[in-house]
């Protein structure tokens, strides 16, 4: 395998968790709820999946545990913002802090444990094509699942009735309520979906990307996923593009550090985060209201009965 091939493969691995988490958050935000707790849900997903996978020696159980943990955290968030109409920004930040702390507690007994790599899907013949063969046809199942998820989310939002209902509620919850659409019910499931995706992204980090647990291992990826949604103007296809751009930035800065360009390594590590800030800045300069933002995003909903 050439270095070039290896770099491409790691870019895919680095991009997949961003893609999964961002897709989940995209659905949540299209329903009009801003959940800033992605980082916390991801950390919980990573800790719980790793703990379950090591304990039961099963990747499948690990993944299930990670998604459950993310969804449970999201359910707590839903209780606050839907049940008590609490401020979404505050609740989301609290969820991140809680998730980072709690994941450290759950993961503590598993520091130092290791998992074996997951066998990639090997499509005989196709994966032997030089360069692109291994890139396209010899990835792990998660990568294919994340691509399928992108397509499914896109179809769901644009083509289905349920997706139309979700978009309407995100666009204007007052009107949606006046028409009798179940605002809180739809948002509850959207928040849960977002949580399960963040949990899955965390599981991928712990079980595939690093294959060990350490506190704070999510390293801001939840925040990048959040920024991706804005960068992508709330469109699934653009989330895919964005996730791979950010994934590439993460990997390439590592190689740039190794190549020793004479730039301090800290500056290079900051590149993906700087890119996040710049992307957000460019968007807000060009448009008063970020383009494509759901109209009711982040506004608490209290039905008037």
């Amino acid at each position: 395998m050439t270095t070039f091939e290896a770099i491409l493969l790691t870019i895919v691995t680095a991009s997949t968790p961003l893609l999964i988490a961002a897709l989940g958050e995209l659905v949540t935000e299209r329903s009009g709820v801003l959940n800033l707790g992605v980082e916390g849900m991801m950390a919980m997903g990573a800790a719980c999946s790793f703990a379950a996978a090591v304990t039961f020696d099963s990747t499948l159980l690990g993944v299930a545990a990670g998604m459950m943990a993310g969804a449970l955290m999201a359910a707590l968030f839903a209780l606050l913002v839907l049940g008590f109409a609490a401020n979404q920004t505050g609740s989301g930040l609290a969820l991140t802090i809680l998730g980072l702390g709690l994941s450290g507690l759950i993961g503590a007994p598993f520091v130092g444990a290791r998992r074996d790599p997951i066998a990639p899907v090997d499509i005989p013949g196709l994966s032997d094509i030089p360069v692109v063969g291994r890139l396209f046809f010899e990835q792990d199942l998660f990568v294919y699942a994340s691509l399928a998820l992108t397509i499914l989310v896109a179809i769901y939002l644009v083509k289905t009735r349920s997706g139309l209902t979700l978009r309407s509620i995100g666009e204007n919850h007052t009107s949606a309520n006046a028409l009798g659409l179940p605002v809180r019910q739809v948002r509850f499931w959207a928040i849960l979906f977002g949580g399960a995706c963040a949990g899955l992204a965390g599981a991928y980090l712990a079980l595939v990307y690093t294959r060990f647990w350490s506190p704070g291992m999510t390293a801001g990826r939840g925040w990048i996923a959040l920024a991706l949604v804005v960068f992508a103007a709330w469109r699934p296809a653009w989330v895919l593009v964005g996730a791979y751009i950010f994934g590439a930035a993460t990997v390439l800065q590592l190689h740039a550090q190794a190549a020793q360009f004479g730039v301090p390594s800290q500056v290079l590590s900051a590149v993906p985060y700087l890119a996040t800030i710049i992307a957000l800045l460019l968007l807000s300069i060009r448009h008063g209201r970020a383009i494509g933002a759901p109209g009711s995003l982040g506004v608490p909903f209290v039905p008037d009965r």
């Binding site: 009735r161 978009r167 309407s168 666009e171 009107s175 028409l179 109209g295």
Partner: peptide, 20 residues
């Protein structure tokens, strides 16, 4: 027919009708 319309600005006319 509501006074302050119960419409969704970013959706198309057909989508606005279908959703109700």
């Amino acid at each position: 027919v509501f006074q302050h319309f119960s419409l969704f600005d970013e959706l198309s006319v057909a989508e606005n009708i279908a959703v109700a």
